[in-house]
Design a protein around this nucleic acid. Structure first.
Length: 279
DNA sequence: AAGAGCCACAACCGCATTCAC
DNA sequence: GGTGAATGCGGTTGTGGCTCT
């Protein structure tokens, strides 16, 4: 594919935006909207490329943007979402009204990552012999992407270092670490669950967590208690502390479909309150 | 007071994905 | 279905301001 010529050609301006440029862009979008970013700067009379205009609007000029420092709650939400979603900043931003992906990315790199590093995430030691530890740095903590593996995920309580101005929060941060359970054989998967690619999980995960976080009644219990997902021949979902649910309905590779998400949503949101589900 | 180093954040770059034809 | 344009996204960089020496 031929790449579209970039800004520096045609004498387009780069670098920081001036108040005049901001004003022109805001006025134009308020009047005409931004249907076509590539055509916008020319029509608005700006010597910028469409990409630059889009970025400026989305990250800075949009009226619904919440300026100012991130609250403690927002930071903790970012940390938790990052554990689940990884560096998918736009997905994280979608769950933080008024915050942009760029802003979240910046605050992660400048504050939160550092904070987590200081807290030294404890790598769970191997539960059994002959298993491989994940020694990658916890830049972000990734949930399992291979559902057909035997990996067990265990919760590690880790508490953030409180900045001077913050009150002492009792909320723990759930970090996910992995270990391999030799009692389960990789080949034991009987086909009831088979995630054929990591993307499958990711898609399901994002939508699922979107529902979880949008549910005010349930999000606290779920997010705080949910520790891990594991899978073997019989799909098992584990909810901390030591709650394992074995769904009683037939599971198949279509579990990621929308209709099944209601089921999983109910499982997760109700699990902590339903002792009959505890093993 | 001045310079060096660090930090925070806006903006850019390039790849991936989506869309339109 | 193929192709190119448009848009979205995440990684990276540039720079202004602050702190420290």
């Amino acid at each position: 594919m031929v790449r579209a010529p970039c800004c520096e050609k045609m004498g387009l301006k780069k670098g920081p935006w001036t108040p005049e440029e901001d004003h022109i862009l805001i006025s134009y979008i308020q009047r005409y909207g931004h249907g076509n970013w590539r055509a916008l700067p020319k029509q608005a009379g700006l010597l910028r490329c469409g990409k630059s205009c889009r970025l400026r609007w989305i990250n800075y000029l949009r009226p619904d943007i919440k300026r100012g420092n991130f609250t403690r709650d927002e930071e903790e939400t970012i940390i938790k979402l990052h554990e689940m979603l990884g560096n998918r900043w736009s997905a994280i931003a979608a769950r933080l009204p008024g915050r942009t992906d760029n802003e979240i990315k910046n605050v992660w790199h400048t504050h939160l990552k550092k904070r987590l590093t200081q807290n030294h995430v404890v790598q769970k030691t191997k539960r059994h012999h002959n298993h491989k530890a994940k020694d990658e740095p916890h830049d972000h903590l990734v949930l399992p992407t291979n559902f057909s593996s035997d990996a067990k995920y265990d919760i590690v309580e880790d508490r953030p270092v409180s900045p001077p101005q913050s009150s002492s929060s009792s909320t723990a941060i759930s970090s996910v670490t992995t270990s391999t359970d030799d009692d389960h054989n990789n080949n034991s998967n009987n086909g009831s669950i088979k995630a054929d690619s990591p993307d499958n999980f990711s898609e399901m995960d994002e939508d699922f967590w979107s529902q979880v976080f949008s549910s005010e009644n349930n999000s606290k219990a779920v997010v705080d208690d949910f520790s891990a997902i594991s899978a073997d021949s019989q799909l098992q979902y584990s909810v901390s502390p030591l709650v394992t649910i074995e769904p009683d309905h037939a599971l198949n590779s279509n579990m990621y479909n929308d209709e099944d998400m209601d089921f999983w949503y109910n499982v997760f949101t109700r699990a902590a309150d339903l002792p009959e589900l505890l093993l």
